[in-house]
Design a protein around this nucleic acid. Structure first.
Lengths: 343, 343
DNA sequence: ATCCCCGCTGGAATCGATTCCATGGAATCG
DNA sequence: CGATTCCATGGAATCGATTCCAGCGGGGAT
């Protein structure tokens, strides 16, 4: 049971050489049944556990992969982390967790640590323009997979959500309810999902012949507070929107708070649709309509891709579908909204 | 920039032996300024990065620590993970994340993986009675720290919340509002926090001379669904409670849903207080009164303790205080509750 | 019966970094 | 000026597991 039991000890107890012991335990080369049995018995009796560090030094694999997200406290990334980690475990790989905290410098710090630890591969929801260590990764030929986000100019397999489809679902849903003025609370242009969702929104607006007033377009930073600021700006405008579409869940919560403080009722005076489903969005009052992707599947798929690349395969990027989950927050119809007390 | 640059390459380029190169880069032994400069320059030019695996094999430290929680998707554990991980990073240690999924078998699987990876130490929010691999850890003398929960019979430093104080705060708060019949939705007796909070509740009830009707005590499993079941049972009883106290956040959400479905209004017909503050509890309608501990501090403190133990120190267990955050969900006064429509 | 082949084995090299040991040269002191 | 000390350094052993290589013995084929 002691962690300091080494292969040499096992070999000695079994009365064979370390070479034979290794062959038996890794099961690769031919070994005699007698040796096999004795080595296995010795290993069990001594509580032998292979030293992954030594193994990693000799062979190329370390059975450790890095996962770099912006913040696990964001339920969306927590789901990704969980999906990735469970998939890794099934291949007996450990997951090194890293939070970039929306900070490019810390992202670089962690990539450096990953490189030093000689991980077998890295899954990352990248920040910024991909200058710093992201390039170093490519040059070091470390298997890499992007999840949720991508960076232009990198030939790296990715697992993303179908943002265009998601936006279309949301806009179509609101248009169907009769809304023509939809206020958009977007993400930062420095993140690929921020850019993709904005352009998809502009296209969807045009496709559905809705109001393309530039005053209806705002941008936040995917954090809660910015959602409130954006909502305030939209609602204070000359002709306020009758519906809001927020590009992520945290900004949606910020918007929700702001709307309430203005005495407006979501789902009655104003419709609200958010990206990313979070377990408790259905518990809010009113429950929030969302365009959701399966974050856990995102993480699990990314890990599968990564393990494939590590094994020498050539992974193809995957785009997962989004789906609309209509709840009460988008029950508002514009005529009602038109009569709401202006702020 | 290539990951395959080795110390030998650096030494060759600097025109010194590997021994000298190692001494310069680790900065331990005396080296001449000339050698220092040449080695450093060579290392930078080649983009040398020490191989942590090889380093770990030779020296005792691997600069990797394991963190085992039941589920990162639980915001409480996500906070712990974040706090722990950031603290580890400051000591340039990586954090291996593991989800036990409330499953003792998977907990054992992960402990095994950690042992194989030869981590420097492990932080764990333990499950079960501590049979399986938890004992193996103790025997292997791997530095260990318990977080949030403990297991009887283990002499392991821990970082926990002051459950007794938290329960007292909650009960005192409700008693002050005039409640005498408080329904308790507890955790599983297999988890230390479940046991501690229940006994603290019984003591607090006695101390405040409140109704000690055994029908007011229920237990769940810290998962959402069980909170709903428990609430249903409490509310269907002959003399339903006028206030509910839930031993964790997920069960509180379950109870909330159940209460709503019965047409009762939290904060008016019935008071609800929950353990664990979660960012969006203030966004619920009504905002939830909670007894909270700083989960991030819990994780950060646990990591500090662990790093201390790894460095040969003898860490003392820490008990962090809890505090009451009163919000509208506990504004209900019992006389109102008494007149609510019975289910 | 001889030869060859194949399965199994022990021994040794290897991965990359650390650290001990011995040595050479310079510096210091009597 | 000679002897002792000390500092910097190169070389080698080491950590634990894998894998190549050579050899040994047995069985089958001719």
């Amino acid at each position: 049971m002691d962690a300091t039991v080494t292969l040499k000890d096992v070999a000695a107890r079994a009365g064979v050489s370390v070479g034979t012991a290794s062959r038996v335990l890794s099961g690769h080369s031919a070994t005699s049944p007698a040796a096999r049995e004795r080595v296995r018995a010795a290993a069990t009796e001594l509580g032998y556990r292979v030293n992954a560090r030594a193994q990693a030094l000799r062979s190329a694999r370390s059975h450790a992969v890095g996962l770099l997200v912006s913040d696990v406290r964001n339920p969306f990334f927590a789901d990704i982390a969980h999906g990735a980690e469970q998939t890794a475990l099934a291949s007996s790989c450990v997951t090194l967790l890293a939070n970039a905290n929306e900070d490019t410098a810390q992202q670089d710090t962690y990539l450096d640590v990953f490189l030093t630890q000689r991980v077998d591969g890295i899954i990352i929801a990248p920040q910024g323009e991909g200058r710093g260590n992201l390039r170093a990764l490519e040059q070091a030929r470390v298997p890499l997979v992007f999840v949720d986000r991508t960076v232009d100019g990198f030939d790296v397999p990715s697992v993303t959500a179908d943002n265009a489809q998601g936006v279309e679902l949301a806009v179509a849903h609101l248009a169907e309810q009769g809304h023509t003025r939809i206020g958009y609370i977007g993400g930062p242009p420095s993140v690929s999902t921020g850019r993709a969702r904005l352009s998809a929104f502009l296209e969807a607006i045009a496709r559905h012949h809705l109001d393309d007033d530039p005053a209806l377009i705002t941008a936040g930073d995917f954090q809660r507070a910015s959602g409130g600021t954006a909502a305030a700006k939209l609602l204070a405008s000359h002709r306020p929107p009758t519906a809001l579409l927020a590009a992520d869940s945290l900004m949606a919560v910020g918007a929700l708070t702001e709307v309430r403080q203005r005495g407006l009722r979501i789902g009655e005076d104003l419709a609200l649709v958010a990206f990313d489903d979070i377990e408790w969005f259905g518990e809010l009052d009113p429950p929030l309509t969302v365009v959701a992707h399966d974050a856990r599947a995102l993480g699990a798929t990314a890990m599968r891709l990564l393990l494939d690349v590590i094994d020498g395969g050539t992974a193809e990027s995957v785009v997962l579908p989004m789906r609309l989950i209509p709840r009460r927050s988008s029950a508002a119809r514009p005529h009602t909204a038109a009569s709401h007390p202006s702020a």
